[in-house]
Design a protein around this nucleic acid. Structure first.
Lengths: 182, 182
DNA sequence: GCTATTATATATCAAAACGATATATCAAAT
DNA sequence: ATTTGATATATCGTTTTGATATATAATAGC
């Protein structure tokens, strides 16, 4: 019980660097960490409310013209919660790959469908890899290397795995084509 | 709306090979496909009920002594639903890596904690890789190669990615150690 | 033979995440 | 001038997660 809401830690991690609005948080998640984590508005906004009630963050309402905006700031208590989580060694790592699922159960269908599914996946990865490599190169050029080491390491994780995916795509297609199609 | 329940397709995929109970289904998911998909009882049992109502599967109750058992069987309509899903080219592929998350936000903590987190991750992967390789070797020895090609391909995906993870672990640890610790 | 443990089997529940949608303002481009 | 896209917050139904409860059958150890 009293399960830990993972999104809380993501938000606290982001807020430990700078004050942000819910919308900003979504953008950050969609940016640098999107290849190993995701978040939605339906996830972020309730979490912000909950954490404000718990005193982990404080809010600051501003309005520019008719436009409202709520910026969140991490408290000392929130900072402690983040540190506690970082120290815990258990971590859940999981992937949900529908492409693999389709391939695994694809025996019921034609060989061509499986090859096509791999190609669609391959294209997506190639696109993602391109973006990630650009991001990684930009990081290396940045002056404050010490501060960016963790960003580099996570980006390198993405690059390594994406390259492994592409390697597998080539292999898988070859295997499927060699045996002729149904 | 009427969003597609992914677990339905997993269950239909498994039932397309053999009749199974809810418990069996959980075991199958925990087995060969666990490295790219997960399922829980709280997910499986309601899905079975729902699909039975939709006519995608039929149930068969038996009782051995005081023990009750419900075995499910795929219908033609269920088989069609599976085929339709296999043909759709869109597929959601996502990973949630708490280890990466901790590393990314680890700047707030000591360098040693980050290295330790990587080591914990590394050990888990080494363990999983061992299991997967054994499974893969067993597959290659199997006579009915044609039927097992899809199993081989998905297993090879796991091996490729796990090996990429290990490669990254070594690299990441080196990077963190080179720069000395806080 | 007795007992403890593990495997089989189904089920439910609160909390969390997902994904889609709604609403409205502001900035930029056509 | 208008349409498109970015900013900003919010909600809602469905699905998933993870934990827990319950009970029987089989196996292993003493």
């Amino acid at each position: 019980m009293a399960r830990e809401r993972k999104i809380d830690m993501v938000i606290l991690g982001l807020l430990s660097h700078e004050d942000l609005t819910g919308y900003d948080i979504k953008k950050r998640i969609d940016g640098a960490i999107s290849f190993f984590w995701k978040g939605s508005f339906g996830n972020i906004y309730p979490a912000l409310k909950g954490m404000e009630n718990q005193g982990l963050i404080t809010k600051n309402d501003t309005s520019v013209g008719g436009r409202e905006k709520t910026t969140y700031h991490i408290t000392e208590s929130g900072s402690d919660a983040l540190k506690d989580w970082l120290k815990e060694e258990q971590a859940s790592n999981e992937l949900k790959y529908e492409t693999l699922l389709k391939l695994f159960f694809g025996g019921a269908e034609s060989r061509g469908v499986s090859v096509h599914n791999i190609e669609v996946f391959e294209e997506q990865i190639q696109k993602d890899l391109k973006v990630l490599k650009k991001y990684s190169e930009a990081l290396e050029k940045a002056l404050d290397v010490e501060d960016h080491i963790y960003y580099s390491i996570t980006a390198s994780f993405g690059i390594e795995t994406y390259e492994a995916y592409l390697k597998w795509c080539a292999k898988a297609k070859k295997m499927l084509k060699q045996r002729g199609g149904k």
